[in-house]
């Protein structure tokens, strides 16, 4: 049995003495399309940052292809794992192309400009995310949905597009937050397409349970600093579990047209 692509082992993490993660175990298999769910403050974002080594856990370790992540250089990690942050605010007027070029940072040597390979990677990333028409636009002037696609393009230029590549991981922190519904769908369609067609392994934190159920193959539920359950959307999103973790009454129905997906209906106390 081969090692999972990315795995976490008994991860513990505390912010200012407050324990956020208390022994997280997870395994991300090659080609997985997984959403990480959990209430606000449950440590989803923290876990993502630990998974790509930006934060160091207080205890436990992360492994990439079975090797301890702590043994990799930042550059080596960045060639395999990309993180699309929840919000990025760019202080200067970078164009879309310049932003996507930043994704090549772990491949470009100091004092050397971008190579033909870098330019090819950028072009392919722009094409895959359908952002080519935006290439000369200023990033800060784009709509939320366009920005998110550009951030995905940056991540693709970073990890996906090198020939002879080792399998890459795309981590996304709330990729649909602050987006209109059409853009939410657009971004999730893109992520699923990349997973299906390019074999990209994806782990995304999500706060919208229904979107997560619609678009992801597997869900992980983070609560009280642990992954309490993992499986298909149908298996994870039971009425009892959702009520227990989020503390609000719900009804779990079926999605009217997508048979695989449960659909969670909120039951407000005075509705």
């Amino acid at each position: 049995m081969s090692d999972p692509l990315l795995s976490a082992h008994q991860i513990e993490f505390a912010y200012n003495g407050r324990m956020v993660l208390r022994g997280v175990d997870l395994a991300l298999e090659r080609g997985g399309l997984v959403a990480l769910l959990g209430p606000n403050g449950s440590g989803k974002t923290t876990l993502l940052k630990i998974l790509n080594g930006i934060l160091s856990p207080r205890a436990g370790h992360v492994a990439l292809d079975g090797d301890n992540l702590a043994a990799f250089s930042r550059r080596a990690i960045a060639r395999r794992i990309a993180l699309v942050p929840q919000e990025v605010n760019v202080p200067f007027a970078f164009t879309v192309r310049e932003m996507v070029l930043l994704g090549r940072t772990p491949h470009i040597r100091p004092l050397f400009g971008e190579s033909a390979r870098d330019r090819a990677a950028i072009d392919r990333a722009l094409a895959l995310t359908e952002t080519r028409a935006l290439a000369a636009r200023v990033f800060g002037e784009l709509s939320g949905g366009e920005r998110q696609r550009v951030m995905v393009a940056m991540a693709l230029a970073q990890v996906l597009l090198d020939p002879g590549l080792k399998p890459a991981v795309l981590l996304l922190d709330e990729p649909t937050v602050h987006l209109d519904i059409n853009h939410q769908i657009e971004v999730l369609e893109l992520i699923r397409k990349l997973n299906r067609e390019r074999g990209l392994t994806v782990l995304a934190t999500m706060h919208d349970l229904n979107l997560a159920a619609l678009y992801f193959d597997r869900l992980m539920l983070l609560s009280d600093g642990r992954i309490i359950t993992e499986g298909t959307p149908r298996a994870v999103l039971s009425k009892e579990r959702v009520q227990g973790v989020f503390g609000t009454d719900v009804l779990v129905a079926d999605h009217p047209t997508r048979a695989h997906a449960p659909h969670i209906v909120l039951l407000p106390p005075n509705g």
Partner: peptide, 13 residues
Amino acid sequence: LLGEEQAAALGVA
């Protein structure tokens, strides 16, 4: 320019 955490994610020490 993307912030320190994103710079780290892009492979900058």
